[in-house]
Computed example of a mutant assay.
Amino acid sequence: MRDWLIGLGVAVACLLASWALLVLLARRLPPGILRDLAAFIPDCLTTVRRLRRDPRVPRRAKVAIVFAGLWLASPIDLIPEFLPVIGPLDDIVVVALALRYAGRQVPRQVLLDAWPGEPRLLLRLLGPAPAAGPGVEEPTR
């Protein structure tokens, strides 16, 4: 039992260290694609927290968003976090899918308001805005 607890502690420490490294890289790297990738997971966690509390977000979208947040927080991953570069890949894919799903359920402006990072990253992830029908206003950016 003691060995199992030690292994769990090491796994949690590695997970927290990889998150800390991502946050540090997101702040230290020069602007560009590497900085955007390093900042993606911390920005996603902030967005999940904000959307979870927003009353304009439907329940099904909140379930998808909370699932993505739990996936990020889980120490069990399809690709281990300690592998350089590809470790956070499964986290990025799950969060991207959840945000795309929520993007179809939630007005874009709500998502943009909750996103702390570069809006262009979220807009690229969400894809083109659906065409507005008659009498429907486009969200402001």
Score class of each variant (00 low, 15 high):
residue 2 R to P: 00
residue 8 L to S: 11
residue 9 G to P: 09
residue 10 V to D: 03
residue 11 A to C: 11
residue 12 V to P: 01
residue 15 L to H: 13
residue 16 L to E: 13
residue 17 A to P: 01
residue 18 S to P: 00
residue 19 W to E: 09
residue 21 L to I: 07
residue 23 V to L: 14
residue 26 A to N: 03
residue 27 R to W: 13
residue 28 R to F: 05
residue 29 L to H: 08
residue 32 G to R: 11
residue 36 D to W: 03
residue 37 L to K: 13
residue 40 F to M: 10
residue 41 I to W: 02
residue 44 C to Q: 08
residue 45 L to M: 13
residue 45 L to W: 07
residue 46 T to H: 10
residue 46 T to W: 06
residue 54 D to Q: 02
residue 55 P to N: 10
residue 56 R to S: 09
residue 58 P to N: 04
residue 60 R to H: 13
residue 65 I to P: 00
residue 66 V to C: 01
residue 67 F to N: 06
residue 68 A to D: 12
residue 68 A to P: 12
residue 68 A to F: 11
residue 69 G to A: 09
residue 70 L to G: 11
residue 71 W to A: 13
residue 71 W to M: 09
residue 73 A to M: 14
residue 73 A to R: 07
residue 74 S to T: 05
residue 74 S to F: 05
residue 76 I to E: 03
residue 77 D to T: 12
residue 78 L to Q: 04
residue 78 L to M: 06
residue 79 I to S: 05
residue 80 P to W: 02
residue 81 E to Y: 09
residue 81 E to Q: 14
residue 83 L to M: 13
residue 84 P to I: 11
residue 86 I to L: 14
residue 87 G to P: 04
residue 88 P to F: 05
residue 89 L to A: 15
residue 90 D to L: 06
residue 91 D to K: 15
residue 91 D to Q: 15
residue 92 I to G: 06
residue 92 I to Y: 09
residue 94 V to P: 00
residue 94 V to T: 02
residue 96 A to W: 00
residue 99 L to G: 06
residue 103 G to M: 05
residue 105 Q to P: 01
residue 106 V to E: 06
residue 111 L to V: 08
residue 111 L to I: 09
residue 112 L to T: 03
residue 114 A to R: 01
residue 114 A to Y: 02
residue 115 W to E: 01
residue 116 P to K: 08
residue 117 G to I: 11
residue 118 E to Y: 07
residue 120 R to W: 13
residue 122 L to I: 11
residue 123 L to D: 01
residue 124 R to A: 15
residue 124 R to D: 12
residue 125 L to Q: 05
residue 126 L to P: 04
residue 126 L to R: 05
residue 127 G to L: 06
residue 127 G to P: 05
residue 130 P to V: 04
residue 131 A to Y: 04
residue 136 V to Q: 15
residue 138 E to Y: 03
residue 138 E to W: 03
residue 141 R to L: 15
residue 141 R to T: 11
